[in-house]
Design a protein around this nucleic acid. Structure first.
Lengths: 242, 242
DNA sequence: CGCCCTATTGAGGGCCCTCAAAGCTAGTGG
DNA sequence: CCACTAGCTTTGAGGGCCCTCAATAGGGCG
């Protein structure tokens, strides 16, 4: 009997929508099989046709794709409560891969369970649809970030997004310290910049007194200042509070 | 009595999914009010809370946002049959703007009509959800395009995407001539490059014998070659045929 | 005909890249 | 206990892709 594996999902959904008791019951009724992933493990790969979607329970995952030149492009990071491949319920073939960053625990949910829950509750459907639409909004911001901002602004914006999302699900306390398994190469792959330039950009943010970057954690020293530096407005995350 | 305003929508949906007769009837039952847009007109703007979603009937629209530095970032182009702001049914506040490129005709559909149709048919819901998920896939490709490819590859990829989508809805015949109201500044805003560099990049593609770019139309001379030049694989568009 | 928008081309500069090497930390095994 | 290794971080130097500024040409329209 899985005690509370759907808890991170509920916490996430309640950060972006109202979830009535009936839907909570449906969520608890999902069959969830846990699976451990080590750093770098692929959960699903391009071309797969999975019959499960994975709920992040602990740790961090990313979506990525490899372009012809050989560089890895990361398109999103995922925190506990996210279902990075929820789309595979409706798009059978994966057009990108999903991998673990650091060790993580995911809960595999059969597509048929999700589909049955959706058919039973239109409201739950709309909440989950909303979730994927917020995903889209994050992609759009990512496009603007890579296409229209300089390295330092883009970096600050990306860190702001992670912190805002981490706070929304209670992963960050008042000390503004965020335990992240990210390494600088991940940031490089996410922003489309070189590792060397990522390093120099982080140094700039550090010297500006905005953040402390240590392997394994990010501490925000000046949340106002970081948002300003990153041209960051959290409204695109469509959080219910804040 | 609107004769067939939902026809472009149906054609689009049938390019990505099977649409049973019952759902076709629901689509025909939507109240659609046409509206003409001139070049550059905003359909909706950042911060709006629209009560309609717009179906593109003729012409072309784009989603965009303005970053702090003042540059406009285009995040997607939309052809007849697309509903660029379908998301506003579930995300009340616009986090980006939608504008017309060249003159266009859109059909405004009340959110309540869409919601009622979704509640009546889970299958229609899944088709429309699928549509927004393909939107997401396009955003992801766009991220990889801007972040990981050089100007000429990115440009070829973008043109491939437009052509592949245009063909899927029957907008392009065998002559591979695509009537597009795009100007070079639009391409610049989409790819995060300068107008000058767009011009030089188009010249390269022209001199390579891949395309003919004229104001108002794009002709593909070498479809195979253009796909190769753009590192393009259409599978992320999740089209039912081709 | 003149105006505005768009396209095109030149020249110089800057942001970021690649190549290269050294320091740091943690885990491993002798 | 400490050399050893592997992965990550940090810093330097030079080069290239793309940017900005600038100017000319072309085309549609009142």
């Amino acid at each position: 009997m899985a005690p509370d594996l759907s808890a991170p999902l509920l916490r996430k959904l309640e950060s972006i929508a109202v979830v009535p008791d009936a839907d909570k019951a449906l969520l608890r009724g999902l069959r969830i099989t846990t699976r451990q992933l080590a750093h770098g493990d692929n959960l699903v790969s391009v071309g797969d046709t999975p019959h499960f979607s994975a709920l992040v329970i602990t740790g961090m995952l990313c979506r990525y794709d490899v372009v012809e030149s050989g560089t890895r492009q990361i398109m999103s990071f995922h925190l506990p409560g996210d279902i990075p491949d929820l789309q595979s319920v409706f798009l059978s073939t994966m057009d990108h891969s999903v991998a673990s960053i650091g060790p993580s625990t995911v809960g595999l949910i059969p597509h048929e369970d999700l589909q049955r829950a959706f058919e039973r509750s239109f409201h739950l459907t709309s909440v989950m649809w909303r979730e994927t639409l917020i995903d889209s909004a994050i992609f759009r911001q990512w496009i603007g970030n890579i296409g229209g901002r300089t390295a330092i602004v883009a970096m600050a914006h990306l860190l702001c997004e992670l912190v805002a999302r981490g706070r929304a699900i209670g992963l960050i306390k008042d000390d503004m310290r965020f335990r992240l398994p990210l390494i600088q190469q991940d940031l490089a792959d996410a922003l489309g910049l070189s590792l060397v330039h990522i390093n120099r950009t982080l140094r700039q943010l550090r010297r500006a007194g905005l953040i402390v970057w240590e392997p394994g954690s990010l501490t925000v020293l000046d949340w106002e200042g970081l948002q300003k530096a990153g041209d960051f407005d959290p409204s695109y995350l469509h959080l219910v509070r804040d």
